[in-house]
Amino acid sequence: MTDRRALQTQLEQGIDALGLSLPAEAVPRLLDYQALLERWNGTYNLTAIRAPGEMITRHLLDSLAILPFVQGASLADLGTGPGLPGIPLAIAAPGRQILLVDSNGKKVRFLREAIRSLKLEGVRAVQARVEEVEGEFDCVTARAFASLADMLAWGGHLLAPQGIWLAMKGKSPDEELPGVPDGFKVNGIHTLNVPGLGAAERHLVVLGRAGW
């Protein structure tokens, strides 16, 4: 078991490297989430990443890297898995209504336990296919969920007229850009420098509705 103080140092240094200023209680709550994920992962196989330090880098810091782009009062995280990036974003910037969407029952059971034990206000989890979800959200996030064409075809109805869609990718998805459906536009592609990832590529595709 990795010492929590070492994980806290790693997390705090990563947050500083990202240039983020988080609420005072955010770091211990993020570590509580990591510990809960690690504990459940032994039984439920929620993520292939098992080393605590790797979870800090590849789950927490990777999620927090998009925080400067998040906007609005409501957010839907599609294909959230064990809550990524939705739960780290909820902890780092509380006060937003967040819907976590996944079709996997085991993962949704974990999400509901995380929401309860971490006392995440305004956060709820639903087990559903993305195309079945209803509502309209100021911000939609999706992390390695599907191609741009598929994610917008399945979930584009969830984006408010002036909303922002944040698609988290590894390498720059240049070959996917022609597949962006009519009615949507790419507003920008940003390289994310996630502390501790080294040469691994991370990109954020920012999309919106055409005409806004």
Rank of each mutant, 00 (worst) to 15 (best):
M1H: 13
M1L: 13
M1R: 13
R4M: 10
Q8N: 10
E12C: 12
E12D: 10
A17S: 13
S21E: 15
E25V: 09
P28H: 09
R29P: 01
R29H: 06
D32N: 09
Y33F: 14
Y33L: 03
A35E: 05
L37P: 11
L37S: 10
L37D: 06
G42M: 10
T43Y: 13
N45L: 08
L46K: 03
T47M: 02
P52K: 11
G53W: 04
G53H: 06
M55Y: 10
M55V: 15
R58C: 03
R58S: 01
H59D: 07
L67K: 07
V70R: 10
Q71V: 12
A73I: 12
S74V: 01
L78N: 02
T80N: 00
T80H: 00
G83T: 04
L84G: 01
I91K: 02
A93G: 12
P94H: 06
Q97T: 15
V101D: 00
V108L: 05
V108D: 00
R109L: 15
F110S: 04
L111D: 00
R116Q: 12
R116A: 15
S117Y: 13
S117P: 09
K119H: 15
L120H: 08
E121M: 11
E121G: 12
R124N: 10
R124D: 03
A125M: 14
V126W: 05
Q127L: 04
Q127S: 00
Q127F: 01
V130G: 04
V130L: 08
E132S: 12
E132V: 04
V133P: 10
G135V: 06
G135F: 04
T141F: 00
R143Q: 08
R143H: 09
S147V: 01
S147Q: 02
W154N: 02
W154A: 07
G155D: 07
G156D: 01
L159P: 00
A160S: 14
A160V: 12
Q162V: 03
G163Y: 05
W165P: 01
A167Y: 04
M168W: 04
M168F: 11
K169I: 09
K169W: 06
K171M: 03
P173G: 01
P173Y: 05
G183V: 11
G183M: 10
K185M: 15
V186P: 01
V186I: 13
V186G: 04
N187F: 06
G188P: 13
H190M: 11
H190D: 09
L192C: 10
N193L: 15
P195D: 12
A199S: 15
A200I: 09
E201N: 08
H203V: 13
A210M: 09
A210N: 08
